[in-house]
């Protein structure tokens, strides 16, 4: 597992730094404009791009064949991608949480943020099995669609739903969201694993 992580992080080192810089810029912009959506959208974009790139390099290098031959457990091979995905997600979300705390007003509640994070995790949960199933090239269109939906969700839902959230309903929504986050990651992992086990390289 550690070997795979070192490989993916070093493979995408330049990209990670580039996205980190972009996320920091978006962070500043979001705080100045008192609108978290830029940062949030960038978080999703960088998360998916980094994961996609790790897969793209692997496909180019015939790595899946190599790693299958090395006898590593498929459970670990698939899990590593989730660690990368969730790891990058956590970093992106840390920025969002700080930005949110800075621009927080009376009108919005933490539940908003939790819902946003929930959505981000669901995006990741959809992405990984799709990449495993269709490969990087074919799932690209699928992923662009997901990102578009995410952005629309951001703009739309933020306007209509968040204004109606109060403290108590916010707490309940947060708890349910956390539960759904966990569930979607676990379900997605097992779907990916099942697809991976049938794959040929």
């Amino acid at each position: 597992m550690i070997g795979l992580l070192i490989k993916d992080l070093c493979n995408t080192k330049k990209m990670i730094l580039w996205y980190l810089a972009t996320v920091i810029i978006c962070f500043v912009v979001s705080v100045l404009l008192k609108n978290i959506s830029y940062l949030y959208a960038m978080g999703i974009v960088s998360e998916i791009s980094i994961i996609m790139t790790t897969f793209a390099y692997e496909e180019r290098d015939s790595w899946p064949k190599f790693v299958a031959a090395s006898g590593l457990n498929p459970k670990i091979i698939v899990l590593e991608k989730y660690v990368i995905g969730v790891g990058v997600g956590i970093i992106a979300n840390l920025f969002s949480i700080v930005a949110f705390a800075l621009i927080k007003t009376q009108e919005n509640s933490w539940a908003e943020l939790v819902i946003l994070i929930l959505f981000q995790i669901i995006v990741i949960s959809c992405c990984l099995p799709a990449i495993y199933k269709f490969g990087v090239e074919k799932s690209r269109i699928f992923l662009i669609a997901i990102i578009l939906i995410a952005v629309c969700f951001m703009i739309g839902i933020a306007e209509f739903v968040f204004k109606k959230i109060n403290i108590t309903s916010g707490a309940i929504i947060s708890i349910i969201s956390l539960f759904v986050i966990l569930l979607s990651i676990i379900v997605s992992y097992f779907i990916s694993l099942k697809i991976y086990n049938k794959k040929e390289f």
């Binding site: 550690i2 290098d61 064949k65 790693v67 031959a69």
Partner: peptide, 28 residues
Amino acid sequence: QKIGVVLDDTGLPLELNINTLDKVLKNI
């Protein structure tokens, strides 16, 4: 891993250098 493998397209991660590759494979 008792079956050693050399693939026609090597299968090695091309973005890495040899020092990092050593670290990766040590863990595999």
